Amino acid sequence: MRPDPPLRALFVINSLAGGGAERVFTTLVEQLSGPRSDFAITVALLDNEAEEAYLLPENVPIERLDAKGGLLRSVRGMRRLVRRSRPDVALSFLSRANVATLAAMRQTGGATVISERVNTTAHLKHGLSGLVSRLLIRRTYPAARQVIAVSQGVARTLETDFAISPDRIRVIHNPVDVDRIRARAALEPAIEVTRDDFVTMGRLVDNKNTAMAIRALATAPARGNLIVLGEGPLREELAHLAASLGLERRVRFAGFLANPHAVLARAGCYLLTSNAEGFPNAMLEAMALALPVVATDCPSGPAEILEVTLGEAPAVFGSGGALVAMDDAQAMATCMGRLIAQDRPAFSEAAAIRAESFSLDQAVGDFRKSLIQAVAANRMAAT
């Protein structure tokens, strides 16, 4: 039953720059706000980005804290905001926002729900900065009323590596708004694409390992191009790699597209080459458009989505595509040839069916329940 009046809810994220976590965050705000909602939502953006890839509903107030990527500035800004707004519950996405929100909410006693979007151990950098980040997470995350993990693999890491009690961890997979994705896919694509082409999508950074897709194309028994959707600091380096392999005409860097779904829907196969994920949105969205995938067995998400275990094999086929060992470009190339040609129809159908398992209504309902339960548990503990 809806609380009356609505709960004051503060939703926190680093920024609305393009990315999977930002897309899910925006979807949740859209779905959980409105005149009949359980929540009166205010959004806090830690950083004031010049360009924002996602738009929030006009009725949702936005606080831009301009922390410039700094943790201490994020904590100070969040403390000022929390003292002023005194939310009943806060929901935060991504590690820096999680730490800053937990630190700020301690002063008011409000309930805090944090959402971990990546495999924390695999994602954090090595060296001193990684050590400090791991220590901060280990010190702060156990104080959350609930920790939402985006996959079972992320949940296991939080429990084993960061000492979070399993009764405070809840797995909520990323939602896939299949109807919206398919409607956008019906529009004209911004670039030319054919069923012979492969697509990969994400920021051009080390963790996404886009170089693996380029190396795989070089030996794949296929004639199509590789379309790279996304921007990042490695673009020039990746273009040089493509040229060195004689692929300058077959690797197309399309940048960030406002509607990538129109391209995905017309391609032949999707490639995920990451070294670490939480639960890959782009892979699921491609599958929702009946695109078979070849994905690396990175921690965490791809194996869970494809419902397979790689073990010692170089590749294994599952529900909608193939799973290959990380950085094994030859195994990826072999699977690319199989999925783009003779086996595409069967895996295309299986991909679309599997994507429908991750419904928008289920995920939104689970987040709503988590926030309401966190407030109830907090109030019970206070009395």
Rank of each mutant, 00 (worst) to 15 (best):
D4G: 08
P5C: 09
P5N: 10
L7R: 07
I13P: 01
S15M: 03
A17G: 14
T26M: 08
F39R: 10
A40L: 09
I41A: 06
D47W: 03
A50V: 04
E52T: 12
A53L: 07
A53D: 12
Y54P: 04
L55Y: 11
L55S: 14
E58M: 00
P61H: 05
A67R: 04
K68I: 00
M78H: 09
R84F: 06
D88I: 12
L91S: 01
S95P: 14
T101F: 01
L102R: 08
Q107I: 06
T108M: 12
G109I: 03
A111W: 11
T112L: 08
V113A: 02
R117W: 02
L131W: 11
L136P: 08
I137G: 09
I137P: 03
R138L: 01
A144R: 05
I148R: 01
A149G: 03
Q152S: 10
V154I: 03
A155G: 10
T157V: 09
E159H: 13
T160W: 04
D161E: 13
D167N: 12
V171E: 13
I172M: 04
H173D: 01
N174Q: 08
N174C: 03
D177Y: 01
D177V: 00
R180K: 14
R180Y: 10
L187D: 15
P189H: 12
A190Q: 15
R203Y: 02
L204F: 09
A211Y: 01
R215H: 03
R223F: 01
I227G: 00
L229Y: 06
L229F: 00
L229T: 08
E231I: 04
L234D: 04
R235Q: 12
E236A: 10
E236I: 00
E237S: 13
E237P: 05
E237F: 00
A239W: 11
A239L: 02
A243R: 15
S244E: 02
L247Y: 07
V251I: 07
R252L: 05
F256Q: 15
A258V: 13
Y270C: 02
Y270G: 09
L271A: 14
L271Q: 10
S274C: 05
F279W: 09
F279K: 08
A288I: 00
L289Y: 05
A290S: 11
P292K: 15
G301F: 05
G301D: 07
A303Q: 07
L306Q: 12
L310M: 09
A315F: 12
F317T: 00
S319F: 03
V324Q: 11
D328F: 10
A329V: 14
Q330R: 05
Q330K: 04
M332S: 09
G337A: 09
A341M: 08
R344Y: 08
P345Y: 03
F347Q: 06
I353N: 10
R354G: 02
R354M: 04
A355S: 14
L360E: 06
Q362C: 07
A363L: 00
R368V: 12
K369W: 09
L371D: 04
A374E: 06
V375A: 00
A381D: 07
T383N: 10
T383F: 15
T383L: 15
